[in-house]
């Protein structure tokens, strides 16, 4: 009898062993998972540290962000005459979009914004402001394409800019899939002087401007593209991250229109 009891205890002890060995594994796993989730919320809210940026003609370089109040919508550069504005420049609602021409979601959101302008642009309620935010770690061609849109602006004015970028988004397969030899062809397609366009593109004179846009996107809290800021008439700003559905953009515009 006693022997039987001992045998039972021995077996039970063998079963209990793993519990003692792993008794910290669940708390540790929970803590790590919690840290990741908390970090996700923290980084996605307003403490952006990712700064994909362009530096001169150098290859991909990852710079530290400027020492400013990172993640504040108030850091948004004032909308000025140097911006690319589609629609009524005095519209009560302005949607400032920071975009990357090789991002597939920007391509999708470009169509959404065209839809927005069809509904709200024609009656002058919404203006679309386009700024550059090439994510060069992911899309090395995006900076050159952004330069191309600036050259189109130089040669064709605002109409040239918008015609060029519409066509670029239309034909690019995204994710660095566009052959850069297509850039002069797009210029030709929309009726620009190809020789002047090629000279402009080779000069690299708009790189600084693109860099400024990129840094401003990061300063306002953008850590991915498309990154948009809806600005109401009273100056109140609403952040919108990603290629959100048309219904969401529409509702945000309606809310912003209520601001006095």
């Amino acid at each position: 009898m006693e022997h039987h009891t001992n045998t039972h205890e021995t077996k039970a002890a063998k079963v209990q062993m793993p519990v003692q060995q792993n008794n910290l594994s669940i708390p540790v796993a929970i803590v790590i998972a919690g840290m990741f989730i908390a970090g996700a919320v923290y980084f996605s809210s307003n403490k952006n540290t990712a700064i994909p940026t362009v530096v001169g003609n150098n290859p991909v370089v990852n710079q530290q962000p400027p020492k400013v109040d990172i993640g504040s919508l108030d850091q948004m550069a004032i909308i000025s005459g140097s911006d690319h504005i589609r629609g009524n420049p005095n519209a009560p609602i302005k949607i400032v979009e920071y975009s990357d021409t090789e991002c597939p979601f920007c391509k999708r959101f470009h169509d959404t914004m065209k839809e927005v302008m069809d509904e709200y642009g024609k009656n002058g309620k919404v203006a679309w402001v386009y700024r550059h935010f090439p994510l060069i770690q992911l899309h090395s061609k995006a900076t050159k394409e952004a330069e191309a849109t600036e050259c189109a602006n130089e040669l064709g004015g605002p109409d040239g800019f918008w015609a060029y970028i519409d066509r670029l988004f239309e034909i690019t397969p995204s994710n660095n899939g566009l052959d850069l030899n297509e850039l002069p062809k797009i210029a030709q397609y929309i009726g620009l002087d190809v020789n002047k366009f090629t000279t402009c593109l080779a000069s690299g004179k708009y790189i600084k401007h693109i860099e400024e846009d990129t840094q401003n996107a990061t300063a306002t809290g953008g850590n991915g593209t498309p990154w948009s800021i809806v600005v109401a008439k009273n100056g109140k700003k609403y952040p919108l991250s990603g290629a959100q559905p048309y219904a969401s953009v529409r509702q945000l515009i309606e809310l912003a229109l209520q601001e006095k």
Binding site: F36, A40, F43, P52, P104, F105, L138, G224, T225
Partner: peptide
Amino acid sequence: CAACGSFL
């Protein structure tokens, strides 16, 4: 959005 860098 992995393709666009907007992830943790």
